[in-house]
Write a protein that binds this DNA or RNA. Structure first.
Length: 475
RNA sequence: CGGGGUGUAGCGCAGUCCGGUCUAGCGCGCCUGGUUCGGGACCAGGAGGUCGGAGGUUCAAAUCCUCUCACCCCGACCA
């Protein structure tokens, strides 16, 4: 069927690369670890941006833009932050033909430049909360990269908020991880686990980190979004204080939260199949493609005219008519499948004669004949159903691959096969997680918010635990 | 940075072990013309290559030697 896509069952990571490259989502760049995002991939990122941007604004945030160059000294102001990011920073040492007095880091994240600026913007409780987001590129010099999932430069959004109290910052941190959950589930059709990161996994410079974790088709976890309560760490590092109602000077409380182009990779690994990309309708830049079928010029004219008529009333961006003459219909079918267009409408002379069309859904491949009259309603319902079905399938898969395990021996045997493991682990003790990582290359993905109270012994040390955490191998 | 692999036309590959038949070939794609068109059409003609790079051995190198670069996969770091 599909030309040159490795089967998932043969080699999952090669399959992923094949899909991304063959569907023309991205290309390698001349620089190691960087990628060119092609229109098919960028269009999906744009849909992600549009919807998230709306959700951020609906929750009271505004966009701004901070520069990508950060004085090296800024990064050093917060101890944990430096330690976490220094090794992966790209540094600019020259400019204008001269060595710079102070090297500039290309932002790996913007906390430092933003808090150095917030210092000037905040003086009173009346300036709070400050709720700003930015869409930007960032750069992290990773040892090993993978298209979309981890690249040296990537695109993301980063929200940076300032609050008067710890509680308000907490409310914000929690609210935003739930925005991410809402987005992942309802737009990406990607079920996620929502919870808190362990000390070992949290953001460098956060008090605590909340996250959404998704499960890919091979059972590995993907951190899909994070929201951090930064407490007063950055406010102290950059001396950001405000005068409160009570007249006292206090350090501001902060949060930051982000998702990146990694989501595009997560979408691929959640929904796509051996025939190529499968895009959930709500992330499809163009959800519908008409493939005309004709033999002679008269038929071509007839069929295209009918397609135009059928599409009348639909937003121009909602559909496209593939009137390329140099390809046969079968070729076009295969190509649009590879590129993941959710709904294909086949229309030929026979359909025109019967005043109907053939409608095919990408996720299941099901075909049905639909009367012209019913087409709009049918397609709109179909897209909604696909969206729901894709989520349901992914959710079922996640549930079926989430296991409850009590013995470390059993865990060690099974975790490499993929899946989420609900286990008792003394995560407060960092050595426990470290040992597990050494033994199994797996980590605690999160402490789910909805973990029921349950008591049992840590599977490694036997220490008493009062709930289970979720551990898995991850990307 | 370790371990494995691959670099030959836009893509996928053969040729490399055992140097000469390679003036480098095949499939797909591309260009021209015609016939086709309901699941990746067919025929005919054509364009396209510093064989990853540098150095060496040789009468002769895609092929042997040395060095080097890039990319992919698997680990250690991470959204």
């Amino acid at each position: 069927m599909s030309k040159g896509i490795t089967k998932r069952s043969d080699d999952y990571s090669q399959w992923y690369l094949d899909v991304v490259l063959k569907a023309e989502m991205a290309d390698y760049s001349p620089v190691r670890g960087c990628m060119v995002i092609r229109p098919t991939g960028y269009g999906i990122w744009e849909k992600i941006q549009q919807q998230l941007d709306r959700m951020f604004k609906e929750t009271g945030h505004v966009n701004a833009y901070f520069p990508m160059f950060i004085p090296e000294s800024f990064l050093q102001k917060e101890a944990e932050h430096v330690e976490g990011f220094a090794p992966e920073c790209a540094m600019v040492t020259h400019g204008g033909g001269k060595k710079l007095e102070e090297p500039l880091a290309i932002r790996p994240t913007s906390e430092t430049i933003i808090w150095s600026t917030y210092k000037n913007w905040i003086s009173s409780h009346r300036d709070l909360p400050l709720l700003i987001n930015q869409w930007a590129n960032v750069c992290r010099w990773e040892m090993r990269t993978r298209l979309f999932l981890r690249t040296t430069e990537f695109l993301w959004q980063e929200g940076h908020t300032a609050h008067a109290t710890h509680e308000e910052a907490e409310e914000e941190t929690f609210k935003m991880v739930n925005v991410y959950r809402d987005f992942a589930e309802n737009y990406m059709a990607m079920p996620v686990l929502v919870g808190r990161k362990t000390e070992a996994e949290k953001f460098a410079g956060a008090e605590h980190t909340y996250c959404i974790e998704a499960m890919m088709q091979d059972g590995k976890a993907l951190q899909a979004g994070t929201s951090h309560h930064l407490g007063q760490k950055f406010a102290q590092a950059f001396d950001v204080k405000f005068q409160d109602k009570d007249g006292e000077l206090k350090y501001v409380q902060a949060s930051s939260w982000g998702v990146s182009t990694r989501l595009v990779g997560g979408m691929v690994m959640t929904h796509s199949d051996d025939n190529g990309l499968v895009v959930p309708p709500r992330l499809a830049p163009t959800p519908v493609v008409f493939v005309p079928i004709y033999r002679k010029d008269e038929e071509r004219a007839l069929v295209l005219e009918k397609a135009e008529a059928l599409a009348a009333g639909w937003d121009k961006l909602f559909y496209k008519i593939d009137d390329r003459d140099q390809y046969k219909p079968g070729y076009k079918f295969a190509e649009w499948e590879l590129k993941g267009i959710p709904v294909r409408i086949e229309i030929g002379p026979r359909d025109v004669a019967s005043d109907s069309v053939v409608v095919v859904r990408r996720d299941t491949g099901e075909k049905e004949s639909v009367s012209a009259e019913a087409l709009h309603g049918h397609v709109e319902t179909l897209l909604e159903n696909m969206q729901a079905d894709m989520f349901a399938r992914a959710k079922k898969r996640m549930e079926e691959n989430t296991f409850t395990v009590d013995s470390y021996e059993e865990y060690k045997e099974r975790v490499a096969d993929g899946g989420f493991y609900r286990v008792f682990l003394d995560h407060a003790n960092p050595e426990v997680e470290q040992q597990m990582q050494e033994d199994t290359r797996s980590t605690i993905r999160c402490i789910p918010f909805d973990a029921p109270e349950e008591s049992g012994p840590c599977m490694i040390t036997g220490a008493p635990c009062s709930y289970r955490v979720v551990a898995a191998q991850s990307y």
